[in-house]
Design a protein around this nucleic acid. Structure first.
Length: 588
RNA sequence: GGGCGUGUAGCAUAGCUCGGAUAAUGCACUGGCCUCCUAAGCCAGGGACCGCGGGUUCGAAUCCUGCCGCGCCCGCCA
């Protein structure tokens, strides 16, 4: 098992390794036979690291239990400075001593980065959010935006160069009808409707006219031709649609507290000039094939369509129009050749998995990317309703993202009034935003992203359990301890840690895991791992807080040690939440 | 038809890359704890043939394989 508690303490393995080496040398066992067996213990409470002896049974001709007991008896006493060694069920168990933990924790404490290393810098393009112009943002967009933003924060923290790429849907056939509808309404009125965020009704009105009026439909088709032909007046009207929608999206981004800015927008339209070049280069590498009048590529990996025929990726349609495969290939060229990216990350839903596999395959075939580049589809599951059905954006009564967010904030505010009436209205409103928005983001980030998740209003806003408010509360409690004491965190340089009680030992061990968890989270692009860790940290803090008096202690040394543990915990929670894009209020 | 994903206590999830001990966490449930640093909390407890069957292994929730349920993709929409 490799839960958050377990990928613990690489340094403990490093420190005790020489002792194992000595013991196994005396048994005459080759290093290859045992060195991979030494690893994190799988059961919390038994030990920190362990070595199962079962596979040694045949070569040593003894039972695993006998072997483990024998091994324990062979260790030199010097290991006791680092760890206690014991045996159980055929495992050799190694538990770090308090003094070893104290030393490690001092090291982390002195580090602003809490032990997290800076990587060799690479250059990433992270493609996320991608709302459609003149269409409402709904809960489905939440996932891409929130997951992508957290990944960006993590990569930046690890020292990488990151381009945020907001690939908005600002081109294509629907724009004919949208522009005609804009004209029908009058520019001013339309702009206003879009700017205040009434995108849903704008789109629906246009769609319904398109379906019911032949005249409108015909005007719309003509308008698409004008748009694609670069007609100046049409482009001017198109820009109104785009900029008014962006104004609205920026409002949502600001409420959500994500990093996306106007300069991160790279809509589909901006790759226009590259599309003929894509065709040209695919032709030159001899992989573009004409099939029924369309220009297509057959990827290396074979896919079958419904009829059982080999399935190509269509790059240019029979009518000469480019489709999204062409745009995505253009993106790859742009990101690799103009931005010099080494890593391309696409935070897009799982339904597009096959599409991305094809595109990455073709990009390699055509030489747009090489082995030196990593392209990753960071896929995520759908948002389901209570009945387990997908929340549809078109016909159903979809919850607007803004409405969801504001309700979350107002519910959070109601809880604060109830729990902490002493907070001033001004503070309360600030804190309510941090909690309400944090709760929604955390609900989305804390489940394994490739799975579907059930949108549960009550659970999302519940302030109990594995939720952002629980983590924020732990942080606020620590701030409160410091405000009650006359010892500010800044005065705690070079504290001497004294780990005595089991609750403070568990807290300390979990604090030591932080850097491992960050590595794990970013390697897998899985923010939920960080979430689970922070919850386990907050939970061990709550236990510590309940059982280990900090300020109400007689021993000055213990007060200082525990205050330092508190400070380190709050810094870890705050940094961890920050990397998820969630604020940490000092009072709540 | 082809492909992909998913199935773990009443509910929601983690663990599956890279196989180890009594399967972890939260909600809900039962019982305790506020003249005491924020009870938005803590402590204790009950609750699971890890979808089903085979295989590999000293050892499988984890790897392989065959089924079953659910979902998604296979559009000259993005």
């Amino acid at each position: 098992m490799r839960g958050h508690e377990v990928c613990y303490l690489k340094s403990l393995i490093r420190d005790v390794y020489p002792f194992f080496k000595e013991v196994f040398a005396s048994l005459g066992l080759e290093e290859e036979l045992w060195s991979n067996l030494l690893g994190p213990a799988t059961i919390e409470g038994h030990s920190d690291i362990a070595l199962p002896c079962h596979s040694l049974s045949s070569s040593l001709r003894k039972s695993p239990v006998d072997i483990s007991e024998h091994i324990v008896s062979l260790f030199s006493d010097d290991i006791l400075n680092i760890a206690k060694v014991s045996s159980k069920n055929g495992f050799v168990n190694v538990s770090a001593t308090s003094s070893w933990i104290e030393e490690q924790i001092s090291y982390i404490f002195a580090d602003d980065r809490l032990g997290v290393k800076i990587d060799d810098s690479r250059t990433f393009a992270v493609d996320y959010s991608a709302p459609n112009v003149a269409k409402e943002m709904h809960v489905g967009h939440l996932r891409s935006t929130v997951i992508g933003d957290s990944i960006v924060r993590l990569l930046l923290f690890k020292g990488h160069t990151v381009y945020r790429e907001n690939h908005i849907g600002d081109w294509g056939t629907p724009f004919g009808m949208l522009i005609e509808h804009l004209l029908d309404l009058g520019e001013d009125k339309a702009a206003k409707e879009l700017g205040v965020g009434d995108l849903d009704s704008f789109y629906k009105q246009a769609r319904s006219k398109f379906n019911s009026s032949a005249d409108f439909a015909s005007r719309s088709r003509n308008r698409v031709v004008l748009l694609q032909g670069g007609d100046k007046e049409t482009l001017r009207l198109w820009k109104i649609l785009v900029s008014e929608s962006m104004r609205y999206f920026n409002d949502v981004y600001s409420i959500l507290g994500v990093l996306l800015k106007d300069s991160d927008i790279k809509g589909e339209s901006s790759y226009h000039d590259l599309l003929p070049i894509v065709i040209d280069r695919l032709t030159k590498t001899n992989i573009l094939v004409n099939s029924n009048g369309a220009d297509v590529v057959f990827p290396t990996k074979k896919w079958l369509n419904r009829e059982g025929g080999e399935m190509p990726a269509i790059i240019r349609k029979k009518d000469g129009g480019y489709n999204y495969s062409a745009t995505d290939l253009a993106c790859i060229i742009d990101r690799i050749e103009r931005l010099n990216c080494t890593d391309l990350v696409y935070v897009v839903g799982t339904p597009q998995k096959q599409h991305f596999e094809m595109i990455f395959d073709i990009a390699l075939m055509a030489g747009f990317m090489s082995d030196k580049h990593n392209a990753t589809h960071v896929n995520f599951g759908s948002v389901l309703n209570q009945n387990g059905k997908i929340l549809k954006s078109r016909e159903g009564n979809t919850i607007k993202l803004v409405d969801l967010l504001s309700e979350s904030v107002s519910r959070a505010e109601a809880v604060i009034i109830d729990k902490n009436p002493n907070l001033s209205p001004d503070e309360r409103s600030k804190v309510a935003k941090m909690i309400g928005i944090g709760a929604v983001k955390y609900a989305d980030l804390s489940t394994e992203r490739s799975k579907d998740y059930i949108f549960d209003w009550d659970k999302m806003l519940s302030l109990e359990g594995n939720t952002a408010p629980y983590l924020q509360y732990a942080h606020a409690r620590i701030c409160s301890i410091f405000s009650k004491s006359d010892i500010p965190p800044s005065s705690l340089s070079n504290p001497i840690f004294i780990i005595i009680d089991k609750e403070e030992e568990l807290l300390a061990k979990r604090l030591l895991l932080f850097s491992n968890i960050i590595e794990d989270t970013i390697i897998n692009y899985s923010p939920h791992r960080l979430c689970n860790y922070l919850h386990s940290l907050a939970s061990s803090f709550a236990s510590f807080y309940e059982n280990c008096p900090v300020l109400k202690n007689e021993d000055e040394k213990i007060i200082k040690s525990r205050l330092a543990l508190c400070d380190l915990t709050s810094r870890t929670l705050k940094l961890g939440l920050e990397l998820l894009g969630i604020d940490s209020p000092e009072k709540m």
